[in-house]
Design a protein around this nucleic acid. Structure first.
Lengths: 120, 120
DNA sequence: CGGCTCGTACGATAGCCCTCGTAGTACGGC
DNA sequence: GCCGTACTACGAGGGCTATCGTACGAGCCG
């Protein structure tokens, strides 16, 4: 018996409830370039889900895990297991209810800056 | 002669040029509750300028200075001396050019959360 | 079963950041 | 000239965080 992973196949990950999402936390999560990049990539493909390894990040796997966890714990993304892969999706529905228009404005701002700096 | 403060009366403060303002920096600046509160208060009164001591912040004056400096160095506010007081104003014009709609969305999100949590 | 890939956990390191206290500078008024 | 007010500079403490390496657990595939 494994110590922690209770049942088999479906390990659940802790997500904050929608009402527990805080603006400060979201802004802090998005103030890191790596995490902002992840969110932009997620938003670019609509409601698609992507595994962690799908992203080409300039950090090691350990650090990736850390960033994905920060995004999940602040309520920006939702993570679910699918086999050995972990699928990531934006919590756009919840964020739009809490802060209407904010996510779109942030993504637009990020896109604009990327275009301006040629760092796309 | 004082070592640093060149001329008399008008000490200039270093502000980033508009094109040097970074979205990550702005988000980081606004991810602190004290600084978010400052920005909200500044935005509430339109184009008014306020001295640092005008704000009733839950921190000491040293920490206030620190927060105002962070806001200035990230390009969120503009600071100018007026006598012994330092007047603070939002750089709404520059931010609106760089990131149209972002500031309003952020302020709306902050107001919405404050109303929801009763922390106004 | 044996290995392979995906992701995690843990520890360590280094850097940043929020907070404060104290000491000091700049300006205005008496 | 002198004092009070407004803000700053400096240094220190404590905590968080970004990064990595290594070692490990979970599921798939041959």
């Amino acid at each position: 018996m494994t110590p922690a992973a209770t049942a088999a196949g479906t390990r659940d990950l802790p997500h904050p409830a929608r009402d527990d999402i805080r603006l400060e936390g979201v802004l802090h999560a998005l103030s890191d370039p790596v995490r902002l990049r992840i969110v932009r990539d997620l938003a670019a493909d609509g409601d698609e889900l992507f595994s962690c390894s799908h992203f080409d990040l300039p950090v090691t796997k350990s650090t990736s895990t850390h960033h994905f966890r920060v995004l999940r714990e602040t309520g920006v993304i939702r993570q679910t297991y699918r086999g050995t892969a972990k699928m990531n999706g934006l919590r756009k529905d919840d964020l739009d209810v809490l802060f209407p228009g904010l996510l779109d404005a942030l993504l637009a701002a990020a896109a604009r800056q990327a275009a301006r700096l040629g760092t796309d």
